[in-house]
């Protein structure tokens, strides 16, 4: 059944789903979420194992790491996004795949990131998984609230306009590059701070945490849940993280299953589980 440990992973999955959703809400396919997630996690692992103190880490120190990770990933996203987002179409998808590979190779080869084995003994701010559930749950709620506000704001509407027709929105006077860049940076920051929490929760961190598989998995969250509202990727992330754990016998078929979701999802259910019509019916969540 769902215990607190699984619940933490589900919430982290939902946060990563939101990270993939944000650029997609502006019509951009970014596969860079694992790269920023890996950067955040590696930063946390390096900082908190510096003094070899196994005593633990305070919550305040972890929040400090999250701010640092946010700054670092935002800078990296600007560096990558500025040249690439001037271009339209498929360039962002290609460039973000490249970023995932570069970050993975860098973490594998840099002299201070522990090579293939990674970094061990990352201290825990919480003694029980329940602490992580409450902390990351709070973060997820805050992100959800922000996204809800975003959808009604000028920025959110600009993103939706770009998604529908980038050329027309540019003609309407929307600074498309700036809007796309904002969405990309927000996505990077969210993935980076999720990485910090994940590194502490998992206790160890290595290059495999940010592999291409994570891009597939998190993309499946958004496709299954639907990318028309922030609720879609959250539900998709929660469900698809829980599913393989609940269906233990599936085992090796996990990635086949996720692959089928992103292969058949856009063909059979273009809007995902959480469609605008469903939100309309739920009334309170009017988009």
């Amino acid at each position: 059944m769902i215990d607190n440990g699984l619940l933490v992973q589900m919430i982290l999955g939902a946060l990563l789903g939101l990270s993939v959703y944000l650029p997609m809400a502006a019509g951009q396919l970014s596969l860079a979420t694992p790269a920023f997630y890996a950067v955040g996690g590696t930063l946390a692992a390096l900082l908190s194992t510096q003094d070899n103190a196994q005593a633990g880490i305070t919550l305040g120190a972890m929040v400090g790491e999250m701010f640092l990770a946010a700054g670092l990933t935002a800078g990296l996203a600007l560096l990558v996004g500025l040249p690439v987002l001037r271009l339209r179409g498929i360039y962002l998808a290609i460039a973000t795949i490249a970023l995932v590979e570069i970050v993975r190779v860098a973490i594998l080869n840099l002299p201070f990131t522990g090579g293939a084995a990674g970094i061990f003994g990352i201290p825990q701010p919480f003694q029980q998984p329940l602490g992580y559930v409450l902390f990351s749950g709070g973060l997820l709620a805050a992100c959800g609230w922000l996204c809800q506000r975003l959808e009604a704001s000028r920025l959110g509407r600009s993103m939706a306009a770009i998604r529908d027709d980038e050329l027309a929105s540019r003609c309407m006077g929307i600074h498309t590059t700036r809007v796309k860049l904002t969405a990309f940076v927000a996505s990077a920051v969210l993935a980076g701070i999720t990485g910090v929490i994940a590194a502490h929760y998992l206790n160890t961190w290595n290059a495999r945490q940010g592999s291409f598989d994570v891009a597939i998995t998190t993309l499946a969250f958004v496709i299954l849940g639907g990318s028309r509202s922030w609720l879609g990727p959250v539900i998709g992330g929660l469900l698809l993280t829980a599913l393989p754990e609940l269906l233990r016998p599936v085992g090796d078929l996990r990635l086949v299953l996720f692959g089928l979701v992103i292969l058949l999802g856009p063909v059979l259910f273009p809007q995902g589980l959480i469609t605008p019509a469903l939100l309309e019916r739920l009334g309170r969540w009017k988009p």
């Binding site: 498929i90 086949v256 692959g259 058949l264 856009p266």
Partner: peptide
């Protein structure tokens, strides 16, 4: 056209993992 990037990625993932099985 963005959607076919996603579906073809899915096709690749399914193919590679079936090979692995």
């Amino acid at each position: 056209p963005l959607l076919s990037l996603i579906t073809s990625l899915g096709a690749g993932v399914v193919l590679v993992n079936l090979l692995q099985l």
